[in-house]
Nucleic acid binder design. Structure first.
Length: 476
RNA sequence: GGUCCCAUCGUCUAAUGGUUAGGACAUCACCCUUUCACGGUGGUAAUAUGGGUUCGAGUCCCGUUGGGAUCACCA
């Protein structure tokens, strides 16, 4: 049978990292077996709907290259793929479930149910409407009384089901709540809609957070009442922000788009989160989506929560940046250049010195800020033990450099380096005694991306001479 | 609180009951070097805890501790 998985997010805002990872695992389970990946929008809670959220979902999946085979925008044989457009369907099935004995009409208000419950004392809601005869309940429904359809659980004993990552799980039927399946507004709850849709859409594997483990027996009861076959369950542990807390947008934790905005590459983010709870069994860590499809296997999914470590993601992002063809890096860097430079610079060359040095694209502005505005540095910067320089040597070296560069026609790194190197040799100075002061003069910073001559190339002749001149004035 | 689940370096993780407990990030040292970074070499660092079972336990069983989840007309 062809594998069919679905990613079923609620359009409630940004795409969380944990969400994206779930989508990735769904995608990989399908695509590693030549199956179908379906996108379904779960918008049954009209209160939580956020305008534009579906577009974020579409765009995120596209950005990382996870294309779906069926979905709201492209259709498919099992549509519609937006739950609000399937409203009638759920009502139909809910009433059918009542007939089958798997659910009942309930006329209690939400308060009545709440009042009866006591979580501490472990008292559950006993629904009086369960005792109503079906005929009587139907009469009240027909009379226009507001109602919900609530699941009926009469089964005793323990429920057993198998999960791909957690193995066999046993839960007592007594623990299960007779939850609302169809709300008074006619919309289904997740608990009902996901079962109906997964069945109707022929979904074979369901991946979701392990917080659903305890309600899975309820879903199985619904499948059973309808005579349907439940899917293969793949419950995954959460992605954590620290040992105690889940990563969540509510806590202001980074979403996928936040990370992209901070200069992380979508491919790197995807690669990193794939490894948060899954490993290939080899020591390879860098994977394209295509490679993941080849090697993914759901039996290597882990069962403990994983803490999202931005430091490791940053390292991995650096790997991806360095692996970029130079012209691609330059293209990605351009918007950042536009943001932080107004001055004319040799940007092509700048890209070559920046590429091996930045770990995120946002690093560009941090590392190269001095190119736009020379900081007002302290001349103590010219002292450096290792380079054997001080203000005096700097003054001499800068004066000599200025002289040597003044009439230079060719302005490339090799030429500049040779000129300054020869100058050092001629005057009996060490390379560093010339190059270090020049670099400080050009940057006003202790550390810079690239050395003296590389910065000179980026700045161009005029600004280079200008800055050396300024340094000399400072030293006088 | 009831129930369910989880537990290897700081972090992500590997280890068909038999390895000096492996790798990666981070960190430290050194090398390379016109600073920094890249790259290279090496170091520090883990089986939560107590009992079993076994010739042998990170691995199997029980308890303890710690953590998470769930108990919505949210998903």
């Amino acid at each position: 049978m062809k594998i069919r998985t679905r990613f079923a997010p609620s359009p409630t805002g940004y795409m969380h990292i944990g969400n994206l990872r779930t989508a990735l695992y769904e995608y990989l389970i399908a695509k590693s077996q030549d199956g179908d990946f379906i996108l379904r929008i779960e918008d049954t809670d009209q209160k939580r709907y956020v305008e534009g959220a579906t577009d974020i979902i579409f765009n995120t999946l596209k950005q990382v290259g996870m294309y779906w085979d069926e979905g709201p925008d492209i259709g498919g044989n099992f549509g519609p793929y937006v739950q609000s457009e399937r409203k009638k369907l759920y009502a139909e099935y809910a009433h059918k479930l009542v007939e089958l004995g798997g659910a009942h009409y309930c006329f209690c208000s939400k308060n009545e149910a709440d009042e009866q419950k006591d979580e501490e004392a472990n008292i559950k809601f006993e629904d009086p409407c369960k005792l109503l005869s079906l005929a009587e309940a139907k009469q009240r429904v027909a009379a226009g009384e507001p109602y919900v359809i609530r699941q009926t659980i009469n089964k005793k004993g323990t429920s057993l089901f198998k999960d791909v990552v957690y193995g066999e799980i046993e839960i007592d039927y007594d623990e299960l709540d007779e939850g609302v399946l169809l709300k008074s507004d006619g919309f289904p709850t997740y608990n009902f809609a996901n079962v109906v849709d997964d069945h109707l859409m022929n979904i074979t594997h369901v991946v979701r957070g392990n917080e659903y483990i305890s309600s899975t027996p309820k879903y199985n009861l619904i499948y059973e009442a309808f005579g349907w076959t439940p899917p293969v369950y793949v419950h995954v542990p959460p992605v954590m922000k620290d040992a105690q807390h889940k990563l969540s947008k509510r806590n202001g934790d980074a979403s996928f788009q936040d990370l992209v905005a901070k200069g992380y590459l979508p491919e790197a983010i995807l690669n990193y989160i794939a490894l948060l709870g899954w490993n290939p069994g080899t020591e390879q860590e860098i994977f394209s989506l295509e490679e993941l499809k080849q090697v993914f296997s759901m039996d290597r999914l882990g069962k403990s929560p994983a803490i999202f470590d931005i430091t490791k993601l940053t390292w991995m992002n650096g790997c991806y940046i360095r692996a970029l063809p130079p012209q691609d890096f330059h293209r990605l860097a351009l918007p950042y250049y536009e943001k932080c430079f107004t001055r004319r610079l040799n940007l092509e060359f700048l890209s070559t010195v920046l590429q091996p040095r930045v770990e995120t694209l946002a690093d560009i502005c941090v590392q190269a800020d001095f190119l736009e505005n020379l900081p007002d540095y302290d001349i103590a910067l010219f002292q450096n033990k290792k380079m054997k320089t001080d203000e005096l040597i700097a003054k001499q070296a800068l004066a000599l450099s200025l002289d040597a560069l003044k009439d230079l026609q060719t302005w490339d790194n090799e030429t500049l380096f040779n000129v300054l190197k020869e100058l050092a040799q001629d005057k009996g100075l060490k390379n560093g005694q010339v190059l270090y002061p020049v670099r400080i003069a050009l940057s006003g910073k202790e550390t810079t991306p690239g050395g003296a001559t590389e910065l000179a190339v980026v700045l161009g002749k005029e600004e280079t001479l200008n800055r050396i001149q300024k340094a000399l004035e400072k030293l006088n």
